[in-house]
Amino acid sequence: MSVILKTNNLIKYYDEKKALDGISIEFEIGKIYGFLGPNGSGKTTFLRACAALIKKHEGEVLIDGLKPGEKTKAIVAYLPDYNYFFDWMKVKDALSFFDDFFEDFDREKSEKLLADMELEHEEKISKLSKGMLARMKLAIILGRKAKLYLLDEPFDGIDGVTREKIIKTMISTFSKESTIIVATHHITYVEKLLDSVKFLYKGKIIDEFDAEDIRRDKGMTINEYYLEEFRDAETD
């Protein structure tokens, strides 16, 4: 099994605070990972470092053997947890943008996803509701055939029915040549989706395991195990 993403003692400071405290982990190709932890644990910072949006850090990040930069942006699809579209853009502008600047973008696929989620081309992105924006971002990002998908809180603002649709879309996007990393604190939504889980707490990895192993060995859901681990972590 080859490794698509590897970090070596990744440290990132914001002022005096250590957002990432020496993270050394690996992610393999062909798996769906849950990158789980409470708010403020450093999930977003980690993903941003992998997406080549943070360059000033200690330690190493390697994506398919490359340092984050121009080349990795072509194989990494990053979904931020905020609205990163230009405020003049309509949905069709976002489609064109991705079509123009990403070679691995499948416009037809995104169009179909947008239609599924009942989003119109002429709608102004800045006027979309929270739920519609979340759906739109996903419809666009899942149109890319990337090697690594970094999804930061993809389910925020999404209702149950749409969530099912999105999970199915993630599954259909997924292939043996790609990897999906889902960073979220909504663990119950992704129980059946994840192969493998990594727990992040205060910038440190506190646990890594396969989803089915927890079920087999502890008879717990991932969420239950998460609550237990983090309760312990809090009291440490």
Binding site: L53, Y84, F86, F101, F102
Partner: peptide
């Protein structure tokens, strides 16, 4: 000021251009 970094962003709005594979 919060992060005490000077970010010379290529565009306003935390921006799409930083995500594309162009230098």
């Amino acid at each position: 000021f919060q992060t005490e970094q000077i970010n010379f962003m290529p565009d306003d709005a935390s921006n799409m251009l930083m995500h594309i594979p162009i230098s």
